[in-house]
Design a protein around this nucleic acid. Structure first.
Lengths: 338, 338
DNA sequence: GTTAACGGTGCAACCGGTTGTACAACCGGG
DNA sequence: CCCGGTTGTACAACCGGTTGCACCGTTAAC
């Protein structure tokens, strides 16, 4: 009961069936202008007849490209999976690449073991380009990619731009985002602001805070800035701490929409009304933002567009383009929490 | 300011540096017994000298393998991302493959466009094997893989086993799992059971229910079986419906731990105590199970081990092994909700 | 009528490895 | 001294495509 392991038809068979040489068959299928319409038709018919599909291995060797782009994920998958912003971003990448002949594949590299495997395959030139969705400074893999000269796109700004001259970068302007959020608070007349942000060492967090500060100045005192995780629970807990301090405040800037959701819950439990007593602004325009009560005013990060951009830059770099840096613009989404 | 695009060293350069032929160099690096130790040493030194790494494209063509295994994801990424069971399973796969020279890559194929791209790359033989993490009956891609004779492992049982003779299958014995859960209820003396399950068309749901029934018989009447989604909210809502019916029950079998979490919340809100008044058993041994109050008794699905198994079977099939079906065993995890 | 130009096709080399087979050098045995 | 066997290496073919270049026949121009 062995299955019929039809070995795939090769170009030679197509050529024979069409009564032409291998080279003519190749050119015909690649629509070269040097081949007559008549011959092209015959070759195409023959190819269809035997179900010919060019073998990726042979083609890759000949053209010097595998037509595969690796999407490098250096975080643990579970973390990636719990953060829906990535899913949006990845969809952007695959969407864009599906217009081309390139295939995006997700390459997990969280454990040391996985990183070594990934490194090996980079060295073997298994991929034409790499898109790193969560690059961090000092990553060994980035060092390897740099040495190998593999076209690489970093998604997110690295502090000090250590690879600016070799890698392309795509990121959203977090400072601008902070600007928008803070400006909205100011226009609403809020004067005593609290910020519940993500991890202190996160570059996006730093930039957003800078944006807040530029607008609010002393209305956002140092003591009112809390660093925590990205989740509902983190926001909830942080808000409780703030309430316990019994300071006066009328606005909360949040590092993520999930943080904001937790913050709102905590405020409601404390008998404070949003937005009557306190204004809340989130970040990300996560799906949860519309489900909050009241619906959350937030800063939209153009994740899908970032994905598109990253994919396009990768394709350009494969064609030999110089590395570029591309900044995407944030947008304030007005809802009811302000 | 163009970067130094060092073109990678080829085997020929290594051979030249070591003063041997290309074939000898190749055999030396592959540790062939036909080459003298002395020569091997010289070749290895030369290879290290010029930083030689065999080019994947050339090698793939020669050996007829790409050494890449595709992990096919046919669901929308967002769904995949929201279900942490997958992350566990995927980790199992990568863990196991990282012992070999094979590289697992995640291939998203949720949109029609993506599926067409995937199909194309299957036909081009870009991958040595495919692991489908969420196969469904009648999938065009499975049909393609079957026709092409690509080694394929299905994770999950397909109703009617349509591909049993060509594909391998790995799945957990859901009926056995249902058995364990129901048996625990019975031993605890629970007589009036309610089941809150996942979607009715899900094969795992069907099998689990069969397991429940085999043990409980009339203690689980048809009217007490509710089909819903997999999430907290679904469990919460379903429990409210049951409470509204004002029927007597002393045990709830849940289709997932997240459902169970929602169920417990609803029970508590209704003033019922778990496990004093009502016993609750979950499914999956999801991380949430330990965070429930009380900690959830549940059925553990050996996801990581399933991943290991799937990877190993894929490797075997690449070497020519016949398709096999492998059933993993469930395990009751005793905690405090029973 | 000869020649240049041109469109269409095939030969052969090439991409970068692996591998079957031939061959050279060396050994010991008769 | 010749022979068979062993060991170590090189030559060349092969994997399945692409592509530079030579060559062919036809037609247009002189």
């Amino acid at each position: 009961m062995t299955q019929p392991v039809r070995t795939a038809p090769t170009l030679a068979e197509v050529a024979a069936a069409a009564g032409v040489s291998r080279s003519t068959a190749s050119r015909a299928l690649n629509d070269s202008p040097r081949i007559s319409e008549e011959t092209k038709k015959r070759v195409r018919a023959a190819a269809k007849e035997v179900n010919f599909v060019p073998n990726a291995r042979g083609r890759a060797l000949a053209v010097g490209r595998t037509e595969i782009i690796a999407v490098l994920v250096t975080e643990p998958l579970s973390e990636l999976f719990s953060d829906p912003t990535y899913s949006e971003f990845l969809s952007g990448i695959t969407e864009e690449l599906s217009e081309s002949s390139y295939l995006p594949v997700i390459l997990q590299a969280s454990s040391t073991h996985e990183r070594n495997r990934a490194r090996e395959h980079f060295e073997r030139r298994s991929f034409d380009a790499v898109i790193d969705v969560s690059p961090y400074k000092g990553s060994e893999l980035l060092e390897v990619l740099r040495e190998l000269g593999v076209p690489t796109v970093l998604c997110g700004q690295l502090e000090g731009h250590p690879y600016r001259d070799v890698f392309s970068t795509v990121y959203s302007d977090d400072e601008e985002g902070g600007h928008f959020a803070a400006l909205a608070m100011k226009e609403r007349g809020r004067k005593d602001i609290v910020a519940v942000l993500g991890p202190q060492d996160n570059p996006a967090v730093v930039d957003r805070l800078r944006g807040y500060r530029a607008v609010l100045g002393e209305d956002l005192p140092d003591a009112n800035v809390i660093y925590t995780g990205w989740n509902n629970g983190d926001g909830y807990q942080a808000m409780h701490q703030i309430l316990a301090r019994e300071i006066a405040f009328d606005g909360v800037l949040c590092g993520s929409d999930r943080i904001a959701a937790g913050v709102i819950t905590a405020l409601n439990e404390a008998g404070l009304s949003v937005p009557a007593d306190v204004s809340v602004v989130g970040f990300d325009d996560h799906e949860i933002a519309t489900r909050c009560v009241p619906a959350l005013t937030t800063v939209r990060q153009p994740l899908r567009e970032e994905g598109h951009m990253a994919a396009n830059i990768a394709l350009d770099m494969i064609k030999g383009a110089e590395p570029t840096t591309s900044v995407m613009h944030m947008q304030l989404i007005q809802r009811d929490s302000l």
